[in-house]
Amino acid sequence: MLAFQILIDGFAVSALYALGAMGFTLIFGVSGVLNLSHGAIMVAAAVAAWAAASVLHTGTYTGALIGIAVALIMSFATYFAVVQPIQRSRRIPNEEKEIFVLTGTLLWGIMIQELIAYFFTNNAKTVLPIIEGVVNIMGVRTPQNEIFTAVVCCVVIALLWLLVNRTRTGKVVLAASMNPRGVTLLGHELTSVYIVVWAIYGVLAGLAGVLLGMFLGVSSYSVGPLTASAFSIVVLGGLGSVSGSLIAAFVVGYLETLTAYLINPAYRTIPALLLLVVVMYIRPQGLLGRR
């Protein structure tokens, strides 16, 4: 009974973590950008979906789509207003650009967070679930929306795999992550590759944010923890490795759920962070990292 409970709850949480972390790792893999405004974009998507569905009464599906659209816009805004100007700047030495991007996206994230708190308060919001009600799986009363969340996450992850490995655009993206110079030599504009990646990222982050808003709820306080959890999953899995992040998300998700059920909900995040420290000692490149 308890084992099933952990299995089911852990799966939903892990799938959601995976979805949130994959866009994050994709951007790093392709363009070397660690986007620290990640959590803010996810929260913005969830709050937009909440505002659309609960304040403007647009309906659940439209609300969710609006949330994803907002994340997409924010993703492009992050790229064009923060990341690109830093990358193109001649006044910032090349070797310092990474740290500038890190700081820039962090500040950008804080700005978004403060704006959300200003306009929508820092109290938590929850997105109206697309499916309501519960089903009984092996004696575990499971909200249908939890199953829906897990299914959507798995489908989207599968689609992303297909996109990257089976389409031409995906292959260019993959190639850019391996050798950017090579891709330009083949006649592909790197900027348009980046735009594709930021678009994929926006949709993934938006979807993850909206689903998180339905499943657990978010507030402007969630911005920091969400960025941190994506960051630690990605570091654990190996920076830039999409499949590494996938595995790491499930490791972290199940470790947290096990802790919450078997030890104490108050210590939920501690073992995962300890594991991260251990992995950093033994295998600094992460589980599946290449560099």
């Binding site: 709850d9 109290n123 938590a124 929850t126 657990l216 709820g217 919450a260 059920y261 909900p265």
Partner: peptide, 28 residues
Amino acid sequence: TDFTPIFNKIEAAKPDVIITGISHVGVQ
């Protein structure tokens, strides 16, 4: 953020009522 384990633990104790003391959390 995830209260599922907490509610499950409470349910397992089979009480008639949950007496709350919450302020920083509420919506979730």
